[in-house]
């Protein structure tokens, strides 16, 4: 730096001390808007958080409420959608299968709940057929009868399809057998049935519950030896395949065996399902089906059957809908 530069530097404009303090006061005042904006951002964040919390809570309440929904309820489709979502986001095929088994068991639980709530009517035309299939078919038929005025076609189809899945996974999912998922649900079903039987004083209801209970118990007795065989074979044994073939009602609608009659009903045709339910309600007091094997049933006869049932001594609470 030469002399001229030094001289130039010496005349550099400077602020007087009072000017400097005044300037700082102005700067300090100008800094507050930044703080205010920060505060506003916090307020906005707080409000947004509150709104999100309310929406989230509403969603949680809806999801929780849908968990209690039964076929025919407003929230039942929500419950199904959540189940589909859980299956879709499951990370592995084994977990997806596990979830499907659980949800199929949930369907069974819904059947039991409806049966207990509204009383039970079942189709015993398959007594000489596959007990395992007829058990669930009976319960599904009872359900369709009970909630016929409100249940939708989709609900019935889904219920029947789920029941078919229930059987398929029972026969093919070795891991599900090992952790006793299936048996646990059946045990729960039996326990619930016994509880409901003890809780009701209605003799016909107790008789019907006892029949379901006997059927399930018989089914357990038949299946457990098979399960012990299949549990050691992860690739699926001929036994398990036989069970699968025997229980795949959704895929063998043309099977002529007597047990497949119920399976055909599980195959998704809810109209036929309801028709057969109606036929079961038209049986004589001895319990013999009046139209076993009938391919078509007049819907009016179905209603007539219901009226007879309602008017008789074996009237079922809740079946007068």
């Amino acid at each position: 730096m030469n002399d001229l530069e030094r001289q130039l530097h010496s005349i550099a404009p400077k602020l007087a001390s009072e000017e400097r303090e005044s300037l700082w006061a102005g700067v300090s005042f100008g800094l507050s808007p930044r703080r205010s904006r920060k505060l506003r951002r916090r307020q906005i964040a707080a409000v947004s958080g509150a709104v999100a919390l309310v929406l989230f809570s509403s969603g949680v309440v809806t999801v929780y409420a849908s968990g209690q929904a039964l076929p025919g309820d407003v929230l039942f489709p929500t419950k199904l959608a959540i189940e589909h979502l859980r299956v879709a986001i499951a990370p592995s095929a084994a977990q997806k299968t596990q979830l499907r088994v659980e949800f199929a068991a949930e369907r069974l639980q819904e059947v039991k709940t409806l049966a207990y709530t509204h009383g039970v009517e079942w189709n015993d035309q398959d007594d000489d057929g596959d007990e395992a299939t007829s058990t669930l078919d009976t319960m599904v038929s009872a359900t369709s009868t009970i909630v016929l005025p409100t249940v939708t076609e989709h609900d019935l189809d889904h219920l029947a399809t789920s029941t078919g899945i229930f059987y398929r996974h029972r026969a093919t999912t070795t891991s599900a057998f090992k952790d006793r998922t299936i048996e646990k649900h059946i045990d729960e079903a039996l326990r619930d049935l016994r509880d409901s039987k003890d809780a009701t004083t209605d003799v016909p209801s107790r008789q019907k519950i006892e029949k379901i209970e006997r059927t399930i118990s018989r089914f357990q007795g038949e299946q457990r030896p098979m399960l012990e065989e299949t549990s050691g074979d992860t690739n699926g044994t001929s036994t398990s395949k036989a069970i699968e073939n025997d229980t795949r009602g959704n895929d063998h609608s043309n099977n002529e065996r007597s047990s497949s009659d119920a399976q055909r009903k599980l195959g998704g045709n809810s109209q036929e399902l309801r028709a057969n339910v109606g036929s079961s309600m038209g049986r004589d007091p001895s319990g013999t089906p009046s139209d076993v094997g009938a391919g078509h049933v007049d819907p009016n006869r179905n209603k007539e059957g219901m009226r007879q049932e309602n008017g008789g001594e074996n009237s079922i609470p809740g079946s007068d809908r």
């Binding site: 404009p13 602020l15 000017e19 005044s22 300037l23 700067v27 100008g30 800094l31």
Partner: peptide, 18 residues
């Protein structure tokens, strides 16, 4: 102009803060 210069400096510091 001193006042104009001070105003500009003040605005500069406020912008710097942000």
């Amino acid at each position: 102009e001193r006042e104009s210069a001070k105003d500009l400096v003040q605005e500069t510091f406020i912008d710097l803060w942000r």
